[in-house]
Design a protein around this nucleic acid. Structure first.
Lengths: 251, 251
DNA sequence: CGAACTATTGAATTACCTCAAGCGTAGTGG
DNA sequence: CCACTACGCTTGAGGTAATTCAATAGTTCG
């Protein structure tokens, strides 16, 4: 418990590998993706979180928690991607969200987890014991405010996803997905704009988009054939024509 | 501004029509659907909300707010149903939620509405000016806690709906919908168990379930033929075999 | 009563799924 | 280090659940 969390101020300077973890850990308290919120947290608050943080690394597919588990901890992603899903009794699966670096996972007001969470590719996270985390929240209302913001954003994303699942074609779904992945990636790595790493499998993408792996694969091929994207391997995509993708994604 | 809100204690006694509004208004502060929360609110808190409530009636289809509007007010449904939706540029629509009596609508942490809201059939609501409402929240943390609970429940419902939209068949979707409607109805009107009023159109249901009106209609007919439900008119359904529906709804 | 909307039912079409086979790639152990 | 295996990805052919188009019936409201 209690490795140091580093403040934004030293984020922009070049870092050697050993500091990467510290740099990323900082995100849990103060993600660059929302600079407005950044300034809201002062050194004391960062320190309060530093006291209760635990750093973890997950292998691809490793489980963070399962639906129905006691909600003992909350997490932030610092590297890689966490996926959450729900299952039906016959095994059909819906992935309900991909969480990128800087995002919180596992915030519930109830006592039990409403869904399962796993690493989608090798992933690093910060873990906070829930009760301790809530004590910090009580002392630091700005942080709670930031979480409420996140929750609200999460709900908006969920509504957007319902539109996708209920009304969009396979092509529109994959286009929307790529744009989302690009946007979430560039929040943390602006230098990677239009170069997305997709550590999840085709099957994960399919279960997120309500499609089959075959359809996802075919649609990827279409995009390649039509010069919308280029790919080196199946897990690294370069967006060649983001306007085209946006037209396809509609709304 | 400021009609009286009546406390739970006089809710169970028989009411003549004129008190119905008062009785229902009470729900905004203290829904019966969650008796645990009920006891959380004391007379002072009920009074605080009474000072800022405004009662409104909406005709079927009337708009409460549109996507992108300033989030000026928050609402609770007291009678009827409010629907929220998102649109695509070509008119495709996804209804993202039906809000039954006792539920809050329009809670956002941001400044703009993330979706549109309309009455799905004739509807009565309580309106609270957002800033005044938030002042009440500051004084009464239990109420905020109740709202957080609601938000968390809303997110869980959204995930459930993603599973429905991404992975369930038409039959499973309609079965899930009927069970949801029954559950939400009986929260307020336990005496109506298995007798659901569905003021929304088939088109609303279709846009909620990610189907077409024709498919919804055909599936209703199937359910009737198979003795799962009986119907008088298209807007009143009696559930004859709720175990059967639950089997169909899966998950 | 008639107009306009909503719901139901049928027939034909289609977007996506299922099944199946082949290919590429990463990891393992000889 | 190189086969070997396993797994994930791609591509094709055929099937199907839900859609689209179309016609009829029922409901609501001025």
């Amino acid at each position: 418990m209690g490795r140091l969390i580093v403040h934004k101020s030293d984020y922009q300077t070049p870092l050697h590998p050993a500091s990467i973890t510290r740099k990323l850990a900082q995100c849990s308290a103060c993600p660059t993706r929302d600079t407005a919120m950044c300034s809201v947290l002062d050194d004391e608050e960062i320190g309060a979180l530093a006291d209760i943080v635990e750093h973890l690394e997950l292998k691809s597919g490793e489980t963070l928690f399962d639906e129905g588990d006691d909600a003992r901890n909350v997490y932030t992603v610092t590297d890689g991607i966490i996926k959450t899903h729900k299952l039906m009794s016959d095994g059909r699966r819906q992935i309900t969200g991909f969480y990128f670096p800087g995002e919180f996972v596992g915030i519930t007001h109830g006592d039990a987890c409403a869904y399962s969470a796993q690493a989608s590719g090798p992933t690093k996270i910060c873990q906070f014991e829930r009760k301790a985390f809530e004590k910090v929240l009580e002392k630091h209302p700005q942080l709670r405010s930031r979480l409420l913001n996140d929750a609200s954003e999460g709900l908006a994303q969920a509504h957007e996803q319902m539109l996708l699942l209920g009304r969009k074609s396979a092509t529109e779904r994959l286009a929307s997905f790529l744009l989302m992945a690009n946007e979430k990636t560039t929040r943390w790595h602006p230098e990677l704009e239009d170069n997305i790493s997709l550590p999840m499998t085709r099957s994960d993408i399919a279960d997120y988009l309500g499609l089959t792996t075959e359809t996802v694969s075919r649609t990827f091929s279409n995009f390649r054939t039509n010069g919308l994207i280029a790919a080196q391997g199946s897990k690294n995509v370069r967006i060649l024509n983001s306007d085209g993708l946006e037209d396809l994604a509609d709304s």
